[in-house]
Design a protein around this nucleic acid. Structure first.
Lengths: 169, 169
DNA sequence: ACCGTCATGTAATCGGTTACATGATTCT
DNA sequence: AGAATCATGTAACCGATTACATGACGGT
């Protein structure tokens, strides 16, 4: 029941548990893969560790299935709901961070053409995948996911465009 | 002299030491602030810890000033130079990652207009700062920094455009 | 001489990543 | 029924962040 600094990972977990009502780490994992995970990856182990932390600190309730896979299922506590609500209400001024190895290589003298070729290829695949997510996202009640996806798409397009221009010299 | 997994931070340190020939953590800190730090931030303490790691593993030589501030100065070893060279030569296929609290808030139901207002403001300031870096970057011998900056700019513009559109409804 | 800010670092903590491992399902 | 893959988790390590702390230097 300690105080706890809530990290981005925490919000992701709290957010999805809130959306689903009740969720297992694996539920979250699948949703992450189709959404946030598209521009922000982390290992699945964190989706097991983080709910644990949150449960210890009183933001989630944990219960364990008895039969079968003995999954852990999580629900929001009052405290968790409050924290999420407060967070939602305070628009962050934090800037996006781009963590990109390719840019580093560019910066430190990697060959621009070679980099552009390789990056353009992967960027296009990624774009295609993102585009395939538009429809399902649009079908949801909540507009948030679709908006976030749009954001991710516009950034991904800017990225692809850059490499394309660079590849063409 | 152990094997060591080299992280993005490692490349940044190795890269700047290579550019400068000899560098103190503070030298690197200043350069980072005007370059990579614009889209990828980390605390200065890491720029003291990381060269240490790299020195222990044999990628850097460390020497300490005797008088005055007793700074630690680092230079590349053969091993460090090799590693950097090899890294430069292998274009990464890794995708950029966007770590962005604002997008998360959008995703999880934050108010789009409110977010857009706040984010647009900070995004514009940031853009202005990036643009002020164009000239100095263009004046360098090495084209890498200017290219990386261009990349950062195009992404930052995409981001600002998105929020602008969203703010305008 | 004093004060504020810049410069330079260390220590402790903790989140995140890597690696390992086993139990369920599904398919052939 | 066996193989392959999906699902689910734990353990250990380490890089990264936070916090603390002091020494130089420049200005008044």
């Amino acid at each position: 029941m300690d105080e706890l600094r809530l990290t981005p990972t925490s919000w992701i977990v709290l957010g999805f548990v809130s959306l689903l009502g009740e969720a297992t780490p694996y539920d979250i994992k699948r949703l992450v893969a189709q959404s946030v995970g598209q521009f922000w990856s982390f290992p699945h182990s964190q989706l097991y560790a983080e709910p644990e932390r949150l449960a210890v600190a009183g933001y989630l309730d944990e219960s364990r299935e008895e039969g079968g896979r003995r999954r852990k299922r999580y629900t929001l506590t009052e405290r968790g709901r409050d924290a999420l609500e407060r967070w939602r209400g305070e628009p962050t001024t934090a800037l996006p961070e781009i963590r990109d190895l390719a840019t580093l290589q560019l910066f430190f003298g990697g060959d621009p053409r070679a980099l552009a070729r390789v990056q353009l290829a992967t960027a296009r695949e990624h774009l295609a995948e993102l585009e395939s997510l538009i429809e399902p996202a649009g079908a949801l009640d909540d507009p948030g996911p679709a908006l976030a996806l749009e954001y991710g798409l516009s950034v991904a397009r800017a990225s692809a465009d850059f490499w394309e221009k660079l590849a063409g010299d």
